[in-house]
């Protein structure tokens, strides 16, 4: 554990909680892509199946349980509790164009051809592109609420911090995981355009295009 990893995890946690609270407090999921949230729920589910097979640390277990729980709670709020506010017409990204190629890639390129490892690899690849339906939705409507931009910023910051974590681990532990690194770079790059807008617009709610 290093400082980049810890702050990255906390940033990820903050993003998840910001989104949950935003939906809960406003009683609305307007402007939020339910498809991206389903993809994140799939990501956590397929990645954290090792909860059942191996114990790493109390921190690790707690965070995994919280991430999974929050992901499903978010999906529940969007598709059940506040379904009337869900903007399905603008959430029109075709997720099969992500899930199918990513599934194929996970079977082809992985560290070990075993069930859990392929699911882990699938989750890594899928996470790198899971935000695309959300970014697509924002570019389609041309606007995002302030709180939604904070959510996206924390989510992007988390993966950017993980890149520093991997640099740290490479130099000080000789550890590197090429699959995670390449996917992490892709994921971070997808946020770059957004980061630029977030910083230059001072994080205020705004109309913008991607």
């Amino acid at each position: 554990m290093n400082i980049f990893r810890l702050i990255g995890d906390l940033s990820h946690l903050a993003a998840i909680i910001i989104l949950l609270l935003k939906i809960w407090k406003s009683r609305s999921c307007a402007g939020i892509s339910g498809k991206s949230q389903i993809l994140f729920a799939i990501v956590f589910t397929t990645r954290y199946l090792d909860l059942l097979t191996s114990f790493i640390s109390l921190y690790n277990t707690c965070m995994k349980v919280i991430y999974i729980g929050c992901a499903y709670a978010t999906v529940y709020l969007i598709y059940m509790k506040f379904r009337a506010t869900y903007d399905g017409n603008h959430d029109s990204f075709r997720v099969e164009f992500l899930v199918v190629p990513v599934g194929g890639l996970a079977v082809l390129i992985n560290h070990d051809f075993s069930f859990l490892e392929i699911l882990w690899t699938f989750s890594i690849y899928l996470e790198s592109v899971a935000i695309l339906p959300q970014l697509f939705m924002i570019s389609k409507t041309g606007e995002a609420e302030t709180i939604t931009t904070h959510y996206l910023f924390c989510l992007g910051l988390y993966r950017a911090l993980y890149l520093f974590n991997w640099i740290w681990r490479f130099y000080f532990e000789g550890f590197f995981d090429m699959i995670a690194i390449v996917a992490g770079v892709v994921q971070t790059v997808l946020y770059c355009d957004f980061f630029y807008l977030y910083v230059t617009k001072d994080g205020k709610g705004y109309r913008f295009s991607i």
């Binding site: 990893r5 995890d9 640390s57 995994k64 993980y162 974590n165 000789g174 550890f175 590197f176 090429m178």
Partner: peptide
């Protein structure tokens, strides 16, 4: 290198 028996990152 990478060891496959468990991933400690989240």
């Amino acid at each position: 290198g990478i060891k496959v028996d468990g991933h400690d990152e989240l």
